[in-house]
Simulated assay, not measured.
Amino acid sequence: MTVRELLARTSSRELTEWQAYERVTGPLDIRARLDISAGVVAATVANSAGAKKKAKPSDFIPTWFKRKRSPEEIWADVMKANAALGGTFNYNEGR
């Protein structure tokens, strides 16, 4: 699916929700999660090179968020992303 087709079939709100989800959980695209594979390789290399303490793959994988964010902070990011994508928000929707 092209970007144009995606934008024609998906609302700004849904795109914003997916963006917020991805920011919390990490990339959805498995190819973007090569950090896990790289972590395994890096730990193997470090351990075979005689690392002082046994390295684990997680020692080499970045942490997406170092601290727990409040729902208000996450909501603020969702609203910023929504605005950046040209979306609007109807506070009465769903009531």
Rank of each mutant, 00 (worst) to 15 (best):
D29I: 10
E14K: 09
L34S: 13
K54R: 14
P27D: 13
D35P: 07
A55V: 00
D29T: 10
K53Q: 11
Q19M: 13
R67H: 11
D29P: 01
R69V: 02
A51R: 02
V41W: 08
A76C: 01
W75N: 14
G50F: 00
A20P: 00
E17P: 05
E5H: 12
R69L: 04
V3F: 11
L28P: 06
A46L: 01
E5L: 12
N82L: 14
V40F: 09
A38R: 15
I36K: 08
L6Y: 15
N47D: 00
I61H: 06
T44S: 07
V41C: 06
D35Q: 00
S48G: 04
I30T: 06
N82Q: 08
P62W: 07
R33V: 01
E22D: 05
A32P: 02
N47L: 01
L7C: 09
K80D: 11
D35M: 09
K56S: 08
Y21G: 08
S11N: 06
R23P: 08
L34I: 12
I30L: 14
K54Q: 11
L85S: 01
S11G: 10
L34G: 14
D77W: 08
E72T: 04
T25E: 14
R33L: 01
V24P: 04
A84P: 02
T2C: 09
I74F: 01
K80L: 05
P62L: 08
T16P: 05
L6P: 08
K56H: 09
D29R: 15
A43D: 05
E72F: 01
V41H: 04
I74S: 06
A81D: 03
E14D: 14
L28K: 14
G50T: 00
G39M: 07
R67A: 13
A55N: 00
T2H: 01
V40G: 05
L15R: 02
M79V: 07
S48T: 08
S48D: 09
A81W: 10
K68E: 09
K54M: 01
T25L: 15
W75L: 15
A81Y: 11
A42K: 06
V24Q: 15
S11P: 00
T10Y: 04
K66P: 02
A8I: 03
A55S: 10
S37H: 12
R67I: 04
L15M: 13
A51W: 07
D77S: 12
G39C: 06
I61W: 02
P62V: 06
A8Y: 07
K66H: 11
V78I: 13
A76W: 07
S37I: 11
I30H: 02
S37D: 13
T25F: 15
L7R: 14
D77K: 11
A38H: 14
E22A: 05
M79F: 12
K66E: 13
P62G: 04
E22I: 01
A76E: 12
E72Y: 00
Y21W: 11
I74A: 08
L6M: 14
A38V: 12
N47A: 09
T44N: 01
R23H: 10
R33W: 01
A55G: 02
K66Y: 03
R31W: 05
I36T: 03
P62I: 05
E72A: 11
V78A: 15
T25A: 15
M79R: 10
S12M: 12
A20K: 03
I36S: 00
A49D: 05
D59Q: 06
A46M: 01
V78Y: 14
R31V: 04
S70W: 04
A83V: 01
R67N: 11
L28D: 12
